[in-house]
């Protein structure tokens, strides 16, 4: 990065710090003890109000639609919209935007599905994992846009995804190994019956815990990450308005980190579910 750009970035950060300090100094001085945790969680938790701009009255969503539900629909619309608009059959000379969309699929194919599942089985599973990766990464990144929220920061969404993975683990296991062999596969060979059954139960339990940890990981990362961006800003309320000079650069840094984390967590979720499904549907020792 050249010096001029760095200087510009620095200027932007300083100016925004000044703005934030100016905006909040009045509010902070008027209210004696701000409800810090309330303010924080209001921005992360599900709600049915859409606040598009500061100081503009917020929109109350119709009954039954909450922000997180809206985000789910929005992500579906975004992905299907872009993909169906920019991917055309028989497009041998691709444009940049086509390559952008295709590269995500190629990333999932070459870095997640094919190395783990092999080409033959991977080709069948690829649409599912690509959908999962795109869905999760778009949901993760949507939360970084102001006024929008992170649906993956809600444990219900991540649990729903994990349940899908869990069901598919069982289905793939029954299909790949057969109903009896699937449970036999969990049973370690050459051990006494009592211990074997105990280990089998543990293995069975671990299938559930692995999926639940999958959901918890995504949820906690997104929730805590987006909270971290905000908590730096909230320090302005708590300490002094001029703390903005420190907290705004920090929150900008966390924000850029969060872009990385959002993509990484979508990658990890897809990778792990791919591994779980593969592990459950191949015989032991392969």
């Amino acid at each position: 990065m050249n010096l001029k750009r760095l200087y510009l970035l620095f200027l932007i950060v300083i100016l925004s710090s000044l703005t934030v300090s100016a905006v909040f100094s009045e509010e902070a001085s008027t209210s004696e003890s701000p409800d810090v945790s309330g303010t924080l969680f209001e921005h992360v938790l599900d709600g049915n109000t859409l606040e598009l701009f500061p100081f503009v009255p917020e929109i109350t969503l119709p009954h039954g639609i909450t922000m997180h539900r809206l985000m789910l629909v929005l992500s579906v619309l975004l992905i299907t919209g872009f993909y169906s608009a920019w991917i055309k059959r028989g497009d041998l000379k691709p444009k940049t935007r086509t390559i952008l969309l295709e590269s995500l699929v190629i990333f999932v194919r070459d870095d997640i599905v094919y190395p783990i599942m092999g080409e033959e089985r991977g080709a069948k599973w690829l649409p599912f994992f690509t959908t999962m990766f795109l869905f999760l990464s778009v949901l993760n990144l949507l939360g970084l846009i102001p006024a929008l929220k992170t649906a993956t920061g809600n444990i219900n969404v991540t649990t729903a995804m994990a349940i899908v993975v869990l069901l598919l683990t069982f289905i793939a296991g029954f299909k790949g190994l057969g109903f009896v062999h699937f449970f036999k596969n969990l049973f370690p060979e050459g051990t006494p019956l009592g211990i074997g059954i105990f280990v089998m139960l543990l293995e069975l339990l671990s299938l559930f815990t692995k999926s639940m940890v999958l959901s918890l990981r995504l949820f906690a990362n997104m929730f805590a990450g987006h909270l971290a961006i905000l908590s730096f800003l909230v320090l302005i309320f708590v300490i002094t308005p001029f703390f903005g000079f420190i907290s705004v650069p920090f929150s900008v840094f966390t924000y850029t980190l969060e872009v990385l984390v959002g993509l990484l967590q979508a990658f990890v979720f897809t990778l792990l579910s791919c591994i779980f499904i593969m592990m459950a549907s191949t015989p032991e020792g392969e």
Partner: peptide, 14 residues
């Protein structure tokens, strides 16, 4: 509700 919404939207997307 949110769980079902997730499933439905993921299903539609898939």
């Amino acid at each position: 509700g949110l769980v079902i919404w997730t499933w439905i939207s993921f299903g539609i997307l898939f």
